[in-house]
């Protein structure tokens, strides 16, 4: 028996929004410790890694580990039927070929359930090596989304250069070029608005804008985003999900032809 309950369907809706642009379907691996998802996008350029810890749920029970392959468009249709403040419970029997989503309104006057067929997905898991990153940038997630959206208008590739002074995002294309520089702030009063940089050595890497835009669909999950970079390894874009877990996106850097 698997059962996981969240008092706010809004969180699950946001999690789904954060992955469904990159993934058509995904396997949710459920165990005692929580729910995990690891999947590459269709073109195998980026990787999504989601962890929802069991202790972050309002109720969590997983008698036997199970993998639930879900079509994310179908899951999205179902979650649209929930109000943000509904309680949501995800249920499945051991070895089941369906999963059930139960939505309960705050006053319990409306209870709905939606059963969805599970899929057998042949998904391969990748081993992600531990990396000591040369640069770790933390900034407001809304600011990152804004920069990516603004610059993507002018080119397909963004160059991110990080030094101890700050981080520079640059794009060039047919129209011309654009640069956004963010200085490290010492804004101790408003930590949420600060830009902080931990740098071992400077890094310059190029990335496809379209993937960064997809990653920023996670912005509603967290006020902060963390970018971790080292030369010649994938960028990690991480959003913490308060008291529940995190979503990390890995993106292979572009290299010179």
């Amino acid at each position: 028996m698997f059962e996981a309950r969240l008092t706010s369907a809004a969180t699950l809706k946001k999690v789904l929004e954060a992955v469904k642009e990159l993934l058509n379907e995904a396997s949710f691996d459920c165990s005692d410790s929580g729910i995990q998802l690891q999947a590459m996008d269709n073109s195998h350029v980026s990787l999504v890694s989601l962890t929802l810890r069991s202790d972050g749920f309002d109720k969590y029970r997983c008698d036997r580990s199970l993998t639930m392959g879900m079509n994310l468009a179908s899951m999205s249709k179902i979650l649209k039927c929930a109000n943000n403040d509904d309680t949501v419970t995800i249920k499945a029997q051991d070895d089941a070929d369906t999963v059930t989503f139960v939505f309960e309104s705050k006053k319990q006057e409306k209870i709905s359930d939606y059963e969805m067929k599970l899929m057998n997905l042949d998904q391969e898991h990748l081993g992600i090596p531990e990396t000591d990153f040369s640069c770790v940038i933390r900034m407001p997630s809304v600011e990152f989304a804004r920069i990516v959206r603004d610059l993507a208008q002018f080119g397909e590739t963004v160059l991110i250069c990080c030094t101890k002074e700050g981080v520079k995002f640059s794009v060039s294309g047919d129209v011309g070029s654009a640069n956004v520089k963010l200085a490290q702030t010492n804004n101790f009063d408003k930590e949420e608005e600060s830009v902080s940089i931990e740098m071992q050595e400077p890094v310059s890497l190029s990335f496809a804008c379209q993937y960064l835009i997809s990653f920023t669909k996670a912005t509603p999950l967290s006020p902060r985003v963390q970018l971790s970079m080292s030369s010649n390894v994938p960028l990690v874009v991480e959003y913490e999900i308060a008291e529940l877990g995190y979503i990390r996106y890995y993106l292979a850097p572009k290299i010179e032809d």
Partner: peptide, 13 residues
């Protein structure tokens, strides 16, 4: 520029 796959950085389990 060339876009490599993520699998060229991470090993398959």
């Amino acid at each position: 520029m060339f876009q490599p796959a993520i699998t060229s950085f991470f090993t398959r389990k």
